[in-house]
Amino acid sequence: MSDLNSVSNRRITISIYRSESRSYVDYTVPLEDGMVVLDAVRYVQEFIDTTLAIRWNCKAARCGSCAAEINNMPKLMCKTRIDTLPDKIRVAPMGAFTNVSDLVTDVSENYMINRQIPEFKPDERAERPWRIAQIDVDRTKEFRKCIECFLCQDVCHVIREHKADYVGPRHVVKVASLDMHPLDTLDRSEFLNREGGLGFCNITKCCQEVCPEGIHITDNAIIQEKERAVDGDYDPLLWISRKIRHNR
């Protein structure tokens, strides 16, 4: 039991963004084995300065509340072990969203976007209870791992630097998860392309790089939706064939 109870003298310094002074403030906290950044930040909040605003819930990388920028990379604080970081640790709030206080940002726009994505619309003729093959579940299953941490939205340069009318990677994943449901009857790629600004995405794959759940956002969701949008909006032969069928 020695390593559990030993009082270690190891300490680390962590510098955290404070919105009041608009600057980074250094705090020194005791270091434990296997400690993650959230442990250190919580220690600061609980025992050094209780006014530090942070957002966290499960501490198990399942809720996606504690997204922040650690040494300039968007990451979950609860999933970033301190022993994987260099000596200098800097924690900043997500930069793509309006800052509320310290490490807390206003992510409410994401819920507003979700509201506008057409809902799941199952095939009403399907016999109940539904029979669905496992092979048809597997693809959409990947997207349903999303914990809505919005790190992909944060890292996306279209949103962060250009503030363009693009729904963002998280919501393309959402659309893909609905579209690829075997019993869903809608095709949301046209919505994505015309209203969702899918064209603004230039597939630079940063979203895929930062996803803590390892979802292949670009390859499996965005590009697939782009190809579906090509079917509907760009492919000249498909366009002509649709016209002909329509006229008949």
Binding site: E69, N72, M73, P74, G95, V155, H157, V158, R160, E161, H162, K163, A164, Y166, G197, G199, F200, C201, N202, T204, C206, E209, V210
Partner: peptide, 23 residues
């Protein structure tokens, strides 16, 4: 350089630069 890197301090991208993506 839209963007150069994912790391947010070395992207060479900004709101001042025009961007149309694939539109």
């Amino acid at each position: 350089k839209h963007p150069l890197e994912c790391s947010i301090n070395n992207r060479h991208d900004s709101q001042k630069r025009g961007y149309t993506g694939e539109t």
